[in-house]
């Protein structure tokens, strides 16, 4: 059994668990909910084992490094972190319906990692990446990104539920708007602190490698833009007392900025630059 098999199993178990959570929404059976949580937790365990195994494998290859060094590994960690945070929220707030929106995100991340044409190999680290700050940087950024992903999932729930209750319909098992709004806010502040830490560790790393903690390159700039979007969101809520729809929309906007920072900058902007 090697790590890629374990991670493959994880991908399909997340898909299965997502199906269970959606079924829970439709059939409203408490047992289904319990089964969904069980499968999600199992998948998380398998994924944890997969990540650790990949780490060990890299040492067996004589190029040992933490499995956080390329796109593939970071997306796998992203999915892992989404589930960790989601299960934490489920445990704390006892609302399984959230899983129907959060677990598919982890599945999508894993599916992207497995099927997209990105390098999945365990590669030796080029000199610039041989730094503990790199690990701190990837770790902190992705904890933040995962929290923002869940905030976006919750925001989607919020908007659907708000629209449904507008038509005077009962929107099923979804948590009340008040609870959703509260959890969104908690995810946002949690994510914000980690994103801040991520930008800071990135700056420290850049400074130790090149002597410049900030150079306005597109990736740095986009992470700052993302940070501004969330700072705006937190301020508008805290100092203007706005919550609800506006915060939900801003959470979605913020998550778009996250995706763009992580994915878009690599693939779209480098493309823009490369034709020059």
């Amino acid at each position: 059994m090697d790590s890629s098999q374990l991670l493959g199993i994880t991908t399909f178990t997340y898909l299965f668990a997502s199906g269970l959570y959606v079924a829970l929404l439709v059939f409203r059976s408490a047992r289904l909910g319990f089964i969904a949580t069980t499968f999600t937790a199992l998948a998380l365990l398998v994924q944890t084992a997969g990540i650790i195994l990949r780490w060990i494998e890299s040492y067996q290859m004589g190029i040992g490094h933490a499995p956080l060094s390329n796109m593939y590994e970071s997306v796998v960690f992203f999915a892992w972190m989404i589930i960790v945070i989601y299960l934490g929220i489920e445990w704390k707030f006892k609302h399984r319906a959230i899983g129907a929106f959060a677990v598919p995100l982890a599945f999508l991340a894993m599916a992207y990692a497995s099927f997209a044409p990105i390098n999945k190999g365990i590669n030796p680290l080029v000199p610039a990446l041989q730094s503990n700050w790199l690990i701190a940087h990837v770790l902190t950024c992705f904890v933040g990104y995962a929290a923002f992903a869940i905030a976006a999932a919750l925001a989607l729930m919020y908007l659907i539920k708000a629209a449904a209750s507008n038509r005077r319909q009962e929107a099923g098992l979804l948590p009340s708007l008040r609870v959703l709004d509260d959890i969104i806010h908690k995810c946002l502040i949690f994510g914000f602190i980690w994103l801040s830490a991520g930008i800071i560790t990135g700056a420290v790393w850049a400074n130790s490698a090149w002597g410049t903690y900030w150079s306005w390159d597109p990736k740095e700039t986009w992470s700052l833009i993302t940070w501004f979007v969330y700072a705006f969101t937190l301020h508008i809520r805290y100092t203007r007392g706005i919550s609800g729809n506006a915060i939900a929309w801003l959470s979605l906007l913020g998550f778009l900025a996250v995706i763009f920072t992580y994915y878009g900058v690599n693939f779209l902007l480098s493309g823009l630059h490369s034709y020059a």
């Binding site: 597109p218 700039t221 979007v229 700072a231 902007l269 020059a276």
Partner: peptide
């Protein structure tokens, strides 16, 4: 903050 966020984009699109 909004202006900073929006204008910062320019420099990431234009080399």
């Amino acid at each position: 903050i909004s202006l900073l966020a929006v204008t910062s984009i320019i420099g990431t699109l234009i080399p």
